[in-house]
Design a protein around this nucleic acid. Structure first.
Lengths: 188, 188
DNA sequence: GTCTATATCAAGATAGAC
DNA sequence: GTCTATCTTGATATAGAC
């Protein structure tokens, strides 16, 4: 069944967030799903294939998330931006980091195809953040001195970095970053 | 010779930056140093021991770096802060990330002793950043609405996150973050 | 589609010679 | 302090039965 395939991918993403691409194994997956390693290999012959599936799912759910917020006409553009940032920051459990960050860290150990996928997803993430900021920018939410690229990369980078620190030092880090981001967006 | 020991630690840190703690092996080290694996095991019986040595060296060089800047009476506190941030961001090659970030990502796979060390180093890093900002704060470099903790964690997180993106997308990311940090610090 | 069994390989680690 | 040799374990991967 194709449901098992989905189940494997979902679990694999969790494992990437917890242990990294290099750190997780087919054994981890098979044990948690109560099947054998060979069974996982049936669905994804090589780890590389699973790696590609992982990145594709990440991109897909990221994009869905964005479109959902983007199309919602009931909230202002400022609210959309803040909501998107909130969701990005809070969709993970306290000891989980962003799967994209995890794969960026393991970048040099990834198979070529997965490297290319990660590059794509990273670009996608950045362009989506820029799109939201550009829309809010027309409403004068930013300083004239701020430029869209700098603000976008800083918001993304600081959230991702904060998730790394949070894993080790606890929740204070992320809340500090969120409140600072809100300051950046508030003054105009 | 104790020089070999130092050589191993230095190389191990580079490898952590490039491939992560889980991803690098005694084989990598031995090959690059032109000795056997057994020889590396003589200096660091277990990988765990090397892990501890790595984190201790990271903390030491970080602290030295800080004290060097801190004690320098020839520059203003604002300049000290900016210089420290600059150094943090630019001490690595373009495809290398911060070794602390790398170890934070692999946190769940680290031996207990190394986990504790990483926690220490992370705290140290944060407290040093706060110290510098607090000193600059007295000079009115920050808004009243900014608080030291938020600014400190945002600066650190955004630099670390930017290094992850830079590895994949190139230098634009880091320069964008640096210029945005300077904006945060400039308005008062 | 899932299983058992097994091949292959790399990694961490140890024993003992030089 | 470095070597050769070897052990153990865990991981990716494949073959073939059910």
């Amino acid at each position: 069944m194709e449901n098992r395939k989905k189940q494997i991918i979902d679990l694999a993403i969790k494992l990437v967030q917890q242990k990294g691409y290099v750190g997780f194994s087919y054994d981890d997956i098979s044990k948690q799903l109560g099947v054998t390693k060979a069974s996982i290999h049936y669905h994804f012959e090589k780890k590389e294939d699973l790696g590609v599936a992982i990145t594709e799912r990440i991109a897909k759910s990221f994009l869905q998330n964005f479109l959902l917020i983007k199309k919602d006409a009931s909230v202002s553009v400022e609210e959309k931006l803040k909501k998107f940032i909130q969701v990005q920051a809070e969709r993970f459990a306290c000891t989980e980091i962003c799967p994209i960050s995890s794969l960026q860290t393991d970048f040099n150990s990834l198979p070529d195809v997965v490297q290319k996928k990660i590059e794509e997803v990273s670009r996608l993430e950045l362009s989506i953040m820029k799109d939201l900021i550009a829309e809010a920018q027309t409403k004068g939410i930013l300083n004239d001195t701020d430029d869209i690229h700098s603000v976008a990369v800083t918001i993304l980078s600081s959230i991702k970095g904060a998730l790394l620190y949070r894993r080790v030092l606890g929740d204070d880090i992320l809340t500090g970053v969120i409140s600072q981001i809100n300051l950046i967006l508030r003054k105009s």
